[in-house]
Each structure stands twice: as structure tokens, then as C-alpha cells.
Write a protein that binds this DNA or RNA. Structure first.
Length: 676
DNA sequence: CTGGGGATGGGGCCC
DNA sequence: AGGGCCCCATCCCCA
């Protein structure tokens, strides 16, 4: 009908003036009230609330994040809270507030207000083209937008790290020099480049490249920014003061979580650069470096989008993870062993990092800091192996090969474990004593009917068994979205995340100290109460923490003959044999009983094993009366201990030593320890 | 300088 | 999923 046509025509031509502006206004109004906000953005210690749709419509990077998560963690090396505040304001208003003004509004300490350069960096990092353009425009208007390596302008600002960049680096103007301008103070914390070791870290702060500086390049060249010292506290909602944010991983429903900003789909993107860490930066920053691009996340999927960010730069693969526990070196915290850097293993002279405490970087010597030009034309680099490729397609194919390789390896490892188990060789990891748990007809068999096919450990319920079996997987299913470290249990990963986020929900009422775990607080509270419930059965020393008692007992075990039975139950030296301090004064049967009692106490501490502890005590009371029985009981005691799953690693030693003593192939051993 | 203890952080893993 | 505990490592202090 003619009316319809007319109506259609009118619809095509109608436009409500200011509609978009009004819409934005409403959205911003809602944001300020938190109305319908469905995402929380964590930047360092500040929380921001926003709408997923708005973020997704404004930033390609944020879009990629909000798809999977309700809680986003932004790299505060790239985006400070103050800067993100400006960015968020821009997203919702289209206006870029003056940095100083915003800083004043945010009550930021003088001199720490975000510079335009920092906003540009953040905009580039977050892939907000409009904001990038706006920043550049403003910088150019003020004559502050200058190319770092082309014509100086650094004015004593940031020196190029290592040596003058060439190739890709030199071809691309970066904006560090802008920080030297009076109106754009360097980002906190240092107003001037530091000297000494700090300078290395300082110089490495790399801002995103000018998105327009390379033909077809995505805006997101993301340098391997290392850890910047934290910004001063900002008057945003602090995490520790706020209600606990939703678990970012719970909400992601198994998604690998945020990944580094993908490149623009319409052209080749610049690769992420993975730089070697520097000493003295701390593990946190290093982990951030490793997390850049957290390559393994995508590869875990093994799905259609695995390994490579859609249309973006290749994210690479995580190197094959290594087993926990078995290979942990003495490095700090045992962290980062998953990714052992070849440069570290070879002791790179330019990286005199102490063992541990820093990134165990990707084993790619080409990625070493200061050698960016070594890729030549092969700009698409596989993170784990360091191979460069001239095109994303070729890299994708290469990455696929990695995936297949890992899968094949997984299969082989699994087969090897099974074969080893079948051959009675035990698993390639973990204590050999684990096998006793599966002793047919043993007590452990009754208590723990669900046995692991790979290592013969047994469990009370199938869910726990499934959980345990994950420890045998080559691929750890739960990667940290910040540092890329992978975990076998989601809970461990979320707990790990708390350390990144500085979430310490458990506060001590007495001193205000905060902890990430309830148990830590419980431990800590004993300091204030003076309670020392853990007593050394050898010397009578008392301890507030169980682990310190255990540590102490090892000291007893170190000396002389005590070592043999010192392994017993992992709790101390052989009773009856004086320790190095001469404090061990127990007679032999009493000593065995003490061991049994300690074991029982250990079991009792594990709430679930109270009954077993009582049984053990009942069985061992007669030790006091008959040394012979005591001696003969060593082996079953050790076996029993191991069967009950007490300290599996030690259980291996227990069984070994117990067997040695009880079977008595070495008569001298028995005589030596026999009181008669 | 060394060793031991106190205290803390982080990961593994079981319940 | 969260709690709890074990283990390792580390730092600091003190004798």
C-alpha cells in the first residue's frame, strides 16, 4: 500500500538530532550509578564498572575480553588506573578530559596525573582508534608528538635499551619522547630516568607503537613492558575494601580468559615481542611479561580458534609444561619452572639474574631484549620455539604442528606412565612410596578404594581421583590470565590470581596485616595470642606453626644416625639417638612410640583421619613395653603411615627406611638401634 | 659468618 | 568451589 511505502520513506529519512549523544549520556549516567553494569575492570588496585556492550563497541581488545569474562584484569603496566579512568570517560562521553583535571578530580598525587602520552599508549593498547587519533591530534597540536629515534626529542629521556633499535623498531616511531615534554610528565613513579639497575627496567617501558606508522599494522604493537613500580593509591574503589569481585574464571565458563590484544583483522599485525626480563624486577613483573600474550591459553582450546588469535598476531604456544613437584628446582617459590629459558640455562651474560625469582622465560634466544631485529622479515614468531615466519598463515601452520606434537607427546607420556606402572616401576614422578597405598588388602585399600591408574595413589571418592589424575596431564587446564602460568586445579589458579590482584581478604584484627588465605590468618593470629600448639617431641620446643615444627624436626634429623629413622614419618630423628644438640634423650621403645604418636597427631590434624589416628595410637601403645615389638613394628608403622597418605613424599622414605629396619638385612642396623 | 627460629608467600593436592 | 593442610622457599632477626 501507498501508506506503507510512505512510512518506509519517512523512516529512512528521519533522524532524531542528538540521539546518539543522548544515548551516550544515558549510558554514562547508568555507568556512574552502576546501573546495568555487567563487567568489572580491575586495573591494579582500582575497580571500574561498565557495560560490556559499550566496551565491546569501543575497543576491539575489550571486546575480546568481555565475551568470556565479567571481570577483566588490565595490565597496569600499560594502563594505570588514572589513565583507564580517562579512557573509560572517553568511551562513554567521546571527550578526553584534561589529564591534570582528571587527576585532580581523582585526587591523584601531584606529578602523577596521567600524561597524554600515557593515554595514547593505553588507547593503542586497548585498541580504541578514536582515542588514539584524538591523542595524536592533541599531541601534534602541542608539538609534542615526536618520533623517538628519528630525531631525538628525548631530551635525556628514555635511552634506547641496549643499543639503538633497528629494523622494525627503528622504523616505527614510538612516543616515549613525549614524556619529556613539560606538559606531559613522565608516568609515575619516576620523573627522571633512574640509574643503575632500575634504569634497565625503566628504559624498557615501551609504549605501544603508533598505529599508523606501519602500513597495515594493527595498533597494538605491544612491547614487553616490564613491571613498573606500582602507582600511588588512587581514590577508586579498592579491591580490599570492595565486595569480592566475581571470580573471573567462574564467569568465564571454561574460557581461557582474556588474551593479549588481537591485531586488526584487516591486515598483518605486529607480533608481540617477548623480552627477556631483567634482574631485580621481581617475579611479579616477570610473570606479567610471561603473561603477555599468554600464549598457551589459546592453544589449550585445541578448537577452531586455538593457538592464534583471530586475525591477529600469532600468540604462539606455551611450551610443553613440565610436571609439578618432580622438577621444581631451588628457584624462588618454584615458580615459573614451566617455562625454562634457554638463556637462563646457559647463563646469559646479559641476564645475570639469580636463579629463581624471575621469569623463566620462553626458550627463545631471538626474543632476548635488544635483539628485535634478528627476526628479519619473519615477523610472525612462534613464542615457544622462537621460529619466525613471514606470514601469519605459515605461523599458524607451524603452531598447529606444535599442537599435534603436544598431543602426541601427551599420548606417549600417558602410555609411558601406564607402562611403567604395569612394570612395577612406578610413575616417573612423585614418591615411589605412593604405591603402597595400593597394596592389595591393605588398610589403605579399604579407606581409599579409588586408585589412580597412573601412579597407584588412591582416594576416597572418584571426584578426588579425577582431580588427582589431572596432575598427570601434560596440559594443565587452568592458565592464569595474567601471567600464563598453568595449574591443574581451578582453585589453585584463582588463588594464584589473588596474588596478582593483591586481593587479601583476610585481615588480622590485631595488626591489620592481610592475607590471601584464611589459613594464613589463622597461623598469623597465633603470633598475637602466643599460642604454640606444636611441640617438638624430642626437645620440647614449641611452635606456633606446624610447618616450623616440621622444619625444626628436620634439624633434629640431620645429625648422625638419626638420619635413618629421621625420615620416619618425616617428623624427626630416631628417638633414642641424641641429636646434634644432645637433646634427644628418649629410650628406644619410647622413641618409637613417640614416632607413632607424632604420626597419629599428624593424622589427627588432618580432620578426616582422626579415627585412623586413634587406631594407630591404640596399636602402638605397647611399644613402650617391648622394644622388640617396637622394632618389628617400625615397618608396619611406616607402611601404615604411608598407606594413610601422610606426606606421600616422605612416605617413600618411611617405607624404605622402615623396611630396612624391620627386615633387618643389615644386622648391624638393628643392633645399632637396639637398646639391648 | 653461621645456624636456628619466626614469619610469610606461593604452589600442590586432598577433602 | 572453597577450605585446609603440606611442602618448599625465602627473608629477617638473633645468638
Amino acid at each position: 500500500p501507498a501508506g506503507d511505502c510512505a512510512g518506509q520513506t519517512m523512516l529512512d529519512t528521519m533522524e532524531a538530532p542528538g540521539h546518539s549523544r543522548q544515548l551516550l549520556l544515558q549510558l554514562n549516567n547508568q555507568r556512574t550509578k552502576g546501573f546495568l553494569c555487567d563487567v568489572i575492570i580491575v586495573v591494579q588496585n582500582a575497580l571500574f564498572r561498565a557495560h560490556k556492550n559499550v566496551l565491546a563497541a569501543s575497543s576491539a581488545y575489550l571486546k575480546s575480553l568481555v565475551v568470556h569474562d565479567n571481570l577483566l584484569n588490565l595490565d597496569h603496566d600499560m594502563v594505570s588506573p588514572a589513565v583507564f579512568r580517562l579512557v573509560l570517560d572517553f568511551i562513554y562521553t567521546g571527550r578526553l578530559t584534561d589529564g591534570a583535571e582528571a587527576a585532580a578530580a581523582a585526587a591523584v598525587a601531584p606529578g602523577t596525573e596521567p600524561s597524554l602520552g600515557a593515554v595514547l599508549a593505553a588507547a593503542s593498547y586497548l585498541q580504541i582508534p578514536d582515542l588514539v587519533a584524538l591523542c595524536k591530534k592533541r599531541l601534534k597540536r602541542h608539538g609534542k608528538y615526536c618520533h623517538l629515534r628519528g630525531g631525538g626529542g628525548g631530551g635525556g629521556g628514555y635511552a634506547p635499551y641496549g643499543r639503538p633499535g633497528r629494523g622494525l623498531r627503528a622504523a616505527t616511531p614510538v612516543i616515549q619522547a613525549c614524556y619529556s615534554s613539560p606538559a606531559g610528565p613522565p608516568p609515575p613513579p619516576a620523573a627522571e630516568p633512574p640509574s643503575g639497575p632500575e634504569a634497565a627496567a625503566f628504559d624498557r617501558r615501551e609504549l605501544p607503537r603508533d598505529p599508523d606508522s606501519l602500513p597495515g599494522a594493527g595498533p597494538l604493537y605491544k612491547g614487553a613492558t616490564l613491571a613498573l613500580p606500582p602507582l600511588p593509591p588512587l581514590p577508586f574503589q579498592k579491591l580490599e575494601e570492595a565486595a569480592p569481585p566475581p571470580d573471573p574464571f567462574r564467569s568465564s565458563s571454561g574460557s581461557p580468559g582474556p588474551e593479549p590484544p588481537p591485531g586488526r583483522p584487516d591486515g598483518p599485525s605486529l607480533l608481540y615481542r617477548w623480552m627477556k626480563h631483567e634482574p631485580g624486577l621481581g617475579s611479579y613483573g616477570d610473570e606479567l611479561v610471561r603473561g603477555r600474550g599468554s600464549p598457551g591459553e589459546r592453544c589449550e582450546d585445541r578448537g577452531g580458534d586455538a593457538a592464534v588469535s583471530p586475525g591477529g598476531p600469532p600468540l604462539g604456544l606455551a611450551p610443553p609444561p613440565r610436571y609439578p613437584g618432580s622438577l621444581d628446582g631451588p628457584g624462588a617459590g618454584g615458580d615459573g619452572d614451566d617455562y625454562k629459558s634457554s638463556s637462563e640455562e646457559t647463563g646469559s651474560s646479559e641476564d645475570p639474574s639469580p636463579p629463581g625469582g624471575h621469569l623463566e622465560g620462553y626458550p627463545c634466544p631471538h626474543l632476548a631484549y635488544g635483539e628485535p631485529e634478528s627476526f628479519g622479515d619473519n615477523l610472525y614468531v612462534c613464542i615457544p620455539c622462537g621460529k619466525g615466519f613471514p606470514s601469519s598463515e605459515q605461523l599458524n601452520a607451524h603452531v598447529e604442528a606444535h599442537v599435534e606434537e603436544e598431543e602426541a607427546l601427551y599420548g606417549r607420556a600417558e602410555a609411558a606412565e601406564v607402562a611403567a606402572g604395569a612394570a612395577g616401576l612406578g610413575p616417573p614422578f612423585g614418591g615411589s612410596g605412593d604405591k603402597v597405598a595400593g597394596t592389595p588388602g591393605g588398610l589403605g585399600e579399604l579407606l581409599r578404594p579409588y586408585r589412580c591408574a597412573s601412579c597407584d595413589k588412591s582416594y576416597k571418592d572418584p571426584a578426588t581421583l579425577r582431580q588427582h589424575e589431572k596432575t598427570h596431564w601434560l596440559t594443565r587446564p587452568y592458565p592464569c590470565t595474567i601471567c600464563g602460568k598453568k595449574f591443574t586445579q581451578r582453585g589453585t589458579m584463582t588463588r594464584h590470581m589473588r596474588s596478582h590482584l593483591g586481593l587479601k581478604p583476610f585481615a588480622c584484627d590485631a595488626c591489620g596485616m592481610r592475607f590471601t588465605r584464611q589459613y594464613r590468618l589463622t597461623e598469623h593470629m597465633r603470633i598475637h595470642s602466643g599460642e604454640k600448639p606444636y611441640e617438638c617431641q624430642v626437645c620440647g620446643g614449641k611452635f606456633a606453626q606446624q610447618r616450623n615444627l616440621i622444619s625444626h624436626m628436620k634439624m633434629h634429623a640431620v645429625g648422625g644416625a638419626a638420619g635413618a629413622a629421621g625420615a620416619l614419618a618425616g617428623l624427626g630423628g630416631l628417638p633414642g639417638v641424641p641429636g646434634p644438640d644432645g637433646k634427644g634423650k628418649l629410650d628406644f621403645p619410647e622413641g618409637v612410640f613417640a614416632v607413632a604418636r607424632l604420626t597419629a597427631e599428624q593424622l589427627s590434624l588432618k580432620q578426616q583421619d582422626k579415627a585412623a589416628a586413634a587406631e594407630l595410637l591404640a596399636q602402638t601403645t605397647h611399644f613402650l613395653h617391648d622394644p622388640k615389638v617396637a622394632l618389628e613394628s617400625l615397618y608396619p608403622l611406616a607402611k601404615f603411615t604411608a598407606e594413610l597418605g601422610l606426606s606421600p613424599d616422605k612416605a617413600a622414605e618411611v617405607l624404605s627406611q622402615g623396611a630396612h629396619l624391620a627386615a633387618g638385612p643389615d644386622g648391624r642396623t638393628i643392633d645399632r638401634f637396639s637398646p639391648t
